[in-house]
Design a protein around this nucleic acid. Structure first.
Lengths: 208, 208
DNA sequence: CTCTTTCCGTAACGGTGTTCTAGAACAATT
DNA sequence: AATTGTTCTAGAACACCGTTACGGAAAGAG
């Protein structure tokens, strides 16, 4: 006998929340502002989500989806190290295209003490698995020294994440500098993971 | 003829702010709570700082000071790559010892839309210069391929920062895993930067 | 049609950062 | 020593925040 919740309101909330975040930053994402923008009341946020925390959680999911979509677009070639470099570029491009979303995913912004749940982290895991597939191919092709692919993937992820985080924090205001840093970091890593320097340079390519 | 501001209040504010941040996290750092704790009124925050934003800025300075002190404690030896590994360890240990401070410095927590000023970034620069000194010694000793020392320092900083950030976000709940990731990342990087693998392994050592 | 259950708009509560307004405290001058 | 001038500070107020209690409205089940 219950009354079903209008699902259109939920999608309106999430879409508007993502827009507010993208256009005006984390400070603009308040329950009141969001409700006003959608044309409903703050109570709707509590029926469709559990509260602001779960709304932010939904934003994280949105962010991971966009990241996954972008990384899925790089198709495997017969040069796994080049694929790795492409994945790194896709990761960075996604972060630069959705900076506020990325900040919510990792920076813990928008909520003073927000920590991702194990569930949230598990949601981002497929993306890391995609990365691990590629590092595994690097090992199989004898481009990388033998090592657990997932471990290598974590190292690459951490490094690129660090560079992107600093870039989003404004530490590399000149885009060309950031590009160069990204390229050299990736290059040093793949060489350090075992790749032949000349082959590595060719695979990593020129862009950031 | 003015009335001098009591400097004891300012240090009480900063010290109490740092304590609140360390003990209860960013949510506890409010002007009212801080004033109550110090035994003054919220107005004091506005005379001794410009507002909450500048208070947070002071917390960043405190965080960079602690980082600089910890990194200054590693003394140069005749193995610059080992020194580099020690600096990385010091960086990580400082972050793990002052997680909330580190989050304020880089995570942009405690203020929904807080971005470090160029001035703030300049404040952290000496620390990076210390790192660049060491990378320069690595190049001079022919342990690293020739490259601008500052550029190499940025790459190392970004990588370690990324790993530490993920660790603070709870992505490596098992400490031993995080230690291993840190060690392998550092190892892969110094090898990729040009070091001989066997020498690198000896210099990087075992701990994270 | 009735009933029951759920959603949602209004209003409230306690909290936040900030600003205004007085008064108090201090340094310099007379 | 008294006065002046400036600055600090306490308290109240403002606008906003996340959240919750309370009704009325809406919709499915019988």
């Amino acid at each position: 006998m219950p009354r079903k919740a209008d699902p259109s309101i939920r999608v309106a909330l999430t879409e508007t929340a993502a827009r507010l975040l993208a256009e005006e930053g984390p400070a603009a994402l308040s329950t009141r502002r969001l409700a006003r923008e959608v044309g409903t009341s703050t109570t709707a946020v509590y029926t469709h989500f559990g509260g602001k925390e779960d709304l932010v959680r939904a934003m994280c999911v949105e962010g991971f989806d966009r990241l996954a979509r972008r990384m899925a677009r790089v198709r495997p070639t017969d040069d796994p190290v080049a694929d790795l470099a492409q994945l790194g570029r896709a990761y960075r491009r996604n972060a630069l295209a959705n900076p506020h979303l990325y900040a919510v995913m990792f920076g813990g912004r928008t909520l003073p003490d927000y920590a991702p749940t194990n569930e949230d982290r598990a949601y981002g895991l497929p993306t890391l698995a995609h990365l691990a597939d590629t590092t595994g191919r690097c090992v199989e092709a004898n481009r990388f020294r033998p090592a657990p692919p997932f471990e290598i993937a974590v190292q690459l992820w951490a490094a690129v994440h660090g560079l992107v985080s600093l870039e989003l924090d404004g530490f590399f205001p000149v885009r060309a500098d950031a590009d160069r840093h990204a390229r050299r970091l990736m290059l040093a890593l793949v060489i350090g993971l075992g790749d032949d320097p000349s082959q590595a340079a060719a695979s990593v390519g020129r862009a950031g």
